[in-house]
Nucleic acid binder design. Structure first.
Length: 282
DNA sequence: TAAGTATGTTAAG
DNA sequence: TTAACCTACTTAC
């Protein structure tokens, strides 16, 4: 469930604890949480699907990656506070709770992550260095993505999932973006024009920004329009039924032309595409 | 109740 | 290329 938009959302919500002193515990003992107990959380940051959390007086950052099943849940609690300013009783814990941060108003749970580890400053730099530009970060520029893609014979569907080339796109966004751009997933990167690459990037920026604002992946044209309006007005976007164009729709008729959607393994995951709306290039 | 699948990634072979 | 890792949900029996 964690493509880049979801991780940025986790970072935003966890940021509600920034500037406060936190209680830090690891219920399963698999994270050295006591090092952060009583420290002030300084800030959070997302780069693609990676989440970083920084604390006062500690160099580097805590690095979290949710994988497919992990999540970071930040919520308000209303528990009675003890003399130390922290809740007297613990909010209920989910299965797989690896790391919990508490302050007087909020609880943040890191649940079943693939990675929850301590990085020093150099490791943190190395992490950023091995990730490509993130469409959801306004301090990132797409040029490295354009350059690598233009020089690569690998399929664009591979390149979009390669986090070294562009960070944050997952299997759903790959499928939906390539459909919207009419590009077959097996098209080699070096066969794409600069116009097409620019369109892929800006579509990723637009779609993922709406996904971040809505809290889920919105892809259907009508839902996109409506979600955009709600987000602009600062209103929550309800969880309408998900209607993807191609993702997960193997064998179902294309919503645009009726042709059955195709699906095949591309890299580690299944790619979905419409053979007519996304014609192969020869 | 068991098996299969998933919006992900790494390491082994 | 394959298996492994983690949890939650769906489907099959």
């Amino acid at each position: 469930m964690a493509e880049g938009h979801a991780v940025h959302g986790m970072a935003q919500r966890l940021r509600q604890l920034a500037g406060t002193t936190v209680r830090s515990v690891s219920p399963d003992g698999a994270f050295p949480a006591s090092a952060y107990d009583g420290k002030r959380l300084v800030d959070t940051e997302a780069h693609g699907k990676h989440l970083l959390v920084r604390f006062d007086d500690i160099e580097g950052a805590v690095h979290i990656h949710c994988g497919m099943t992990g999540r970071v849940s930040t919520r308000r609690h209303r528990r009675a506070l003890g003399d130390d300013g922290f809740p007297k009783t613990e909010p209920p814990a989910a299965n797989g709770l690896r790391w919990r941060l508490l302050n007087r108003t909020h609880v943040a749970d890191v649940i079943a992550p693939t990675i929850c580890e301590v990085l020093n400053q150099e490791d943190t730099r190395a992490l950023h260095a091995r990730l490509g530009p993130d469409p959801l970060r306004d301090d990132h520029e797409p040029e490295p993505f354009f350059t690598t893609t233009t020089q690569s014979r690998r399929a664009i569907g591979m390149l979009l999932l390669d986090q070294r080339i562009v960070a944050g796109i997952g299997n759903v966004y790959r499928a939906e973006i390539l459909f919207r751009q009419g590009i077959h997933p097996w098209t080699p990167g070096n066969r794409l024009s600069s116009t097409e690459l620019a369109a892929i990037w800006s579509d990723a920026v637009g779609l993922m920004a709406i996904g971040l604002g809505a809290g889920w992946i919105v892809a259907a044209p009508r839902q996109l329009t409506e979600a955009r309006e709600l987000i602009d007005q600062g209103l929550p976007v309800p969880r309408w039924p998900k209607t993807y164009a191609v993702y997960g729709r193997r064998g179902k008729p294309c919503r645009q032309c009726g042709t059955p959607i195709e699906a095949a393994r591309l890299g580690q995951q299944t790619a979905f595409w419409c053979p007519v709306c996304q014609p192969p290039r020869d």
